[in-house]
Design a protein around this nucleic acid. Structure first.
Lengths: 236, 236
DNA sequence: TCAGAAAGTGAACACTGTTCACTCTTGTAC
DNA sequence: GTACAAGAGTGAACAGTGTTCACTTTCTGA
């Protein structure tokens, strides 16, 4: 009565995945606190009382291990953004929340988020339209989170709130760029959010809220925009 | 007839700075092509026919050396942005060009730009308002480039084009975040600019232009915004 | 019970940035 | 011109890193 897909979990299997789990949880702990720099295979091995080489029985390389941490993080990120975009609130609020949630979640685990955007592919020469095609991208976690943005833009246009002249995908990319940029600056520029000359301190969340409002505003239909000028330096 | 500040360049001094120059130029060459990963002290030493330890007579550490590359890059960046913002063109065009130039220049040297935002200060505890205060920040290259943005926002407000309700500094931060985000995505997400489902390819410069327009649009005074709806998916 | 697979290990390799005692060259003062 | 000191340059070494590999131990299925 067992389907062929469920591969009959033996005790050995359970033991193995328990060890595997202990590795990634130790890795997660260290990585969240100290990032890639603080995470060495030897240290990891120490923490879980195994030898360094043992880890290579579970992960092909350090990079592979870290990739798993990043993917798990992006799963959470996607989930949160998705939830915030489907809440029961007026559209413009949801749209703002969507952007704000993205940034807030990213900032929660700075090392994870930063590491996810830390590789530079110098030259992938004649890749036969393969690597990172649109379909491949959408299937990825990043792509899915991005997909949420696209639907949001489309919805806004259908509701007659967003400028119909905008290409939804391209507008979503702009939105993503804005959100990503804010997340990165909050992560990499110390005290970015409270960087002002005179003494008007602003909390990070307030700044995120403000930035989200500005971004949404940039997509508004010109007619709507003029009725929607409730933006001061402070968040609403 | 020599002022006291000019410290009388001896031949030894010139020799020294020639060697120093050869180090950073080799470093620049390697770093621009392969980034921090490809740049090792030993390799650098090989390229300039010195021993690795010799380099430490000129630079305290690898990090110090790379910092110099980054600073030089940001100097160029600042210069370009500054020029584009003071050209002889209508304000809105200049504003767009300012943002676009920032992104374009950043993308020119992906490793430099990426590396400049790659450190995470985990916790700088009770720093007596010192490290990265507003003044300190403005004095830095990054800060100066940012300063250009602030003046731009102010100018826009004085011209009655930008929403006067916006706090110039905070709006400028938003602008910076948007530009930074686009630069980062173009650098780190392969083929980001031409990531669309249907077959409407778009050049990177066109996308940058479009994004810049959107960003500027988000700052417009509500009244002006409605007259300024010339945004399609394609750049103008 | 026994063969074979899997789990785990320690030593090694090829790197890395950095330091340090050392030599050799250069410039200066007498 | 010679003595001395400062600086330039070096090779070997240290303490790390990720990774591999021959090896032993443990477990498991027939």
């Amino acid at each position: 009565m067992q389907t062929d897909d469920a591969p009959e979990e033996t005790p050995a299997d359970r033991r193995r995945s328990r060890v595997r789990e202990s590795i990634i949880s130790a890795a997660e702990r260290v990585f969240a606190k100290e990032g890639e720099e603080g995470l060495s295979i030897r240290r990891l091995a120490d923490e879980i009382d195994y030898s360094p080489s043992a880890i290579y029985k579970y992960f092909g390389s350090k990079e592979e291990l870290i990739d798993e941490l990043k993917e798990a993080f992006f799963e959470r990120l996607l989930e949160k953004v998705d939830n915030s975009s489907s809440a029961d609130r007026p559209f413009l609020e949801r749209a703002k929340a969507c952007v704000a949630t993205y940034v807030e979640t990213a900032v929660t685990r700075p090392f994870h988020y930063a590491a996810a955007f830390s590789s530079i592919q110098n030259d992938l020469p004649e890749n036969g339209a393969g690597i990172l095609s649109w379909d491949g991208f959408v299937a990825s976690q990043k792509g899915q989170a991005f997909g949420v943005l696209i639907s949001m833009v489309r919805e806004g246009q259908e509701l007659g709130v967003f400028d119909p002249a905008l290409h939804p995908v391209i507008a979503a990319k702009s939105l993503w760029a804005g959100s990503h940029g804010l997340a990165q600056l909050l992560i990499h520029v110390p005290k970015f959010h409270q960087l002002v000359p005179d003494e008007t301190p602003m909390s990070a969340t307030d700044f995120i809220e403000f930035h989200a409002s500005l971004q949404i505003r940039s997509l508004l239909k010109p007619a709507v925009a003029s009725e929607n000028g409730d933006l001061s330096g402070q968040a609403t």
